[in-house]
Amino acid sequence: MEVIAIQKSVLDGMKMELKALLELTENATRKYVPIFNKEKWLDNQEVCLMMGITKRTLQTYKDKGLLPYSKLNRKNYYKLSDVQALLGVGQPYNIKYNGFTDE
């Protein structure tokens, strides 16, 4: 085991910097907490598994405005209630007026 000795003032400075970094991180994420606490959010993979569709089909749903989404750090998230609503009306690819066919 290696032991490293540092001055107390240096250790205190490191502690203060870590506290400041933690505070910055908490402040940056605080605005997103209410969004995620109110409703369950799903990522691409979870939506595809839940709906039984491919990622390409999911992209088509997004492009056509059938499934709203939010982007956070270059990743898409979908409200569970929106996915359930889309499932409730039936799989969109079975509906001719959406431009999808089941062929």
Rank of each mutant, 00 (worst) to 15 (best):
M1V: 13
V3D: 12
I4G: 07
I6N: 06
S9Q: 04
S9Y: 03
V10D: 11
L11F: 09
G13W: 04
E17T: 11
A20M: 07
L24Q: 13
T25F: 12
N27E: 10
A28G: 06
T29W: 02
R30G: 10
Y32M: 04
V33W: 07
P34L: 09
P34M: 06
P34H: 06
W41I: 02
N44T: 05
Q45M: 10
E46R: 05
C48F: 07
M50D: 15
T54L: 08
T54F: 05
K55T: 11
R56N: 14
T60Q: 15
Y61C: 07
K64Y: 04
K64G: 08
G65Y: 00
G65F: 00
L66H: 05
L67H: 00
L67D: 01
P68G: 05
P68F: 03
Y69C: 11
Y69M: 08
S70R: 01
K71M: 09
R74Y: 00
Y78M: 06
K79A: 13
K79T: 05
S81F: 01
D82Y: 04
V83W: 02
A85E: 09
G88I: 00
V89T: 09
G90R: 01
G90W: 00
Q91R: 11
Y93P: 14
N94I: 15
K96N: 11
K96W: 11
Y97W: 14
T101I: 08
D102R: 08
E103A: 10
